[in-house]
Design a binder for these strands. Structure first.
Lengths: 286, 286
DNA sequence: GCAAAAGTGTTCCATGTACACCCATGT
DNA sequence: ACATGGGTGTACATGGAACACTTTTGC
């Protein structure tokens, strides 16, 4: 049986928040078409590979992150016959989010990689290679609406996070201030999050340095039902930001916080899931 | 440059409502793999064709409907390496809805076509060819949620419809009763619909002989093809009784309906669009 | 007249919003 | 001590759910 042959690729729009700015990972093309332009990381799907697997592989190749450090979902397929001058190509676009990136490094066909603020593309209409402008636009829309109905926002945070950190994620991505009090109730009552209260050690991938692997979660917490808590709050101020600092590539996180020490939360049952009731944003900025 | 060659296909999940039952168009496979099984209509994407164009072409080939009689949107891409035993295939799935189907006819590689109730697949777990079970499941989910935020439900109705007809669409697809009074307000106040009140003629295919060119839309409502329940009344709003008489001068459709005559509505600005405020369903039946 | 369906009015209650206020801590 | 941000209480507005009620037609 004969059929028209296609090249099938995956492209990944990987988002993160750095310095309270919503950013996307882009690579500078070194190859033939659109050489020097910015583009989404991606590549061909291998003959024996599922689409999700291909996207995960490209993501790992491009960032070096462990595969539990991100959240990855399919966006859509794009197949304009003129989208790639070299050949007939259909790309399956994915969007992904992660708490932090080690340091963008160039992949196989990429000259360099950058974390670009999303509003540089939205607002300034920065042109990207191929039809990647449209893909990014669609991906941003998708993420903004997914924040309403799922807990993926927590994926922008370290495994244990404070209510304020999570709120800041929503505010950054939606570009809307949220009432701290009401958001507090949302985290407490939605059922999607649990306070980090147990003693079991959390083994997260980013806890790289040797001495910290077995660090119990209690070092990260606020008040537990256990005996001593306030003394560990000081330990919290010591260890938790060190993780941040490690992960964000020695970018010094502002350590000037005052006020009551925040208790930390995490997503129920590990991975992000659906919210029973959506968290609505009022202004829908297009 | 060499790359792994793929076959790229489109598959369309076309939904309609017949006899107040939510149904999907399926074909019985005549070809090689899964011969005799039910499958989604679809086919190869041509070398110079965009994905949407391929889906629209297949839809037209399969149903014979005009391209303004349906609503078509991309669902997702499916590319499991084992999904087609013949070759490495990626399919881009679409979902579509239409008010009514002429009479399912077999396409090129189809032995026959049927309108199958959706709950035959959801409830009875009717097995389909390839991974089409999953595609249908995803498509049904997508449509159910799209009803909340868009006006696509009107696409299941003739161009001009009564509030009760539209409500019945929601009730059928969501499988949930809705309060007639509240739904009335939704149609009136949402801003997404306008009453068919003006005199402007809608140029329609069935505007047959000369003298009837200026017939208002109210008299041209869709022919109900042998459905047991009719509700296709030539009756107009109370604003235009004379037109009603004009329309009923022609041998009109049978009407067993009782009660107050319903005024008719249509989607604002022609095609389906977004709702300013979503219409929420309470029970989310999975 | 009676039944059935369109369409309106109105009450009740859940939920979101705004904001005051207390609490705990770092400087 | 006091400024700062976490966290709680609460009053008010909004909007949907439920349902009574009127209107208009077919039988």
């Amino acid at each position: 049986m004969s059929y028209p042959p296609f090249a099938v690729t995956v492209d990944i729009a990987l988002f993160t928040i750095e310095d309270d700015i919503f950013k996307i990972l882009l690579i500078e093309r070194g190859g033939d078409p659109y050489c020097g332009d910015l583009a989404l990381p991606g590549g061909f799907v291998l003959p024996d590979e599922d689409l999700d697997a291909a996207a995960a592989r490209e993501l790992e190749e491009e960032t070096g992150l462990a595969d539990d450090a991100w959240h990855l979902e399919q966006l859509a397929a794009y197949g304009d016959p003129a989208r790639d001058p070299r050949m007939r190509t259909v790309t399956v676009a994915f969007w992904a989010i992660t708490a932090s990136l080690p340091r963008p490094r160039g992949g196989s066909d990429a000259a360099a990689a950058y974390l670009v603020p999303v509003d540089r593309i939205e607002g300034d209409h920065l042109r990207l290679a191929f039809d990647h402008d449209r893909i990014v636009e669609d991906a941003v829309d998708r993420i903004r609406s997914r924040l309403e109905t799922t807990t993926i926002a927590a994926q922008f945070c370290p495994p244990a996070f404070t209510v304020a950190e999570l709120r800041k994620v929503y505010e950054t991505i939606w570009n809307t201030p949220l009432d701290p009090g009401n958001f507090q109730r949302f985290v407490r009552d939605s059922g999607a999050f649990t306070p980090v209260s147990s003693f079991k050690p959390i083994v997260h991938a980013r806890a790289t340095p040797h001495a910290r692997v077995l660090e119990p979660a209690v070092a990260l917490l606020g008040p537990s039902e256990g005996a001593t808590d306030d003394t560990e709050a000081g330990s919290s101020a010591d260890s938790a930001p060190s993780l941040d600092r490690l992960a964000s590539g020695e970018k010094t996180v502002k350590r000037s916080r005052r006020g009551r020490p925040a208790s930390r939360w995490m997503v129920r049952e590990g991975r992000p899931g659906m919210l029973a009731k959506p968290l609505r944003r009022k202004t829908d900025d297009s």
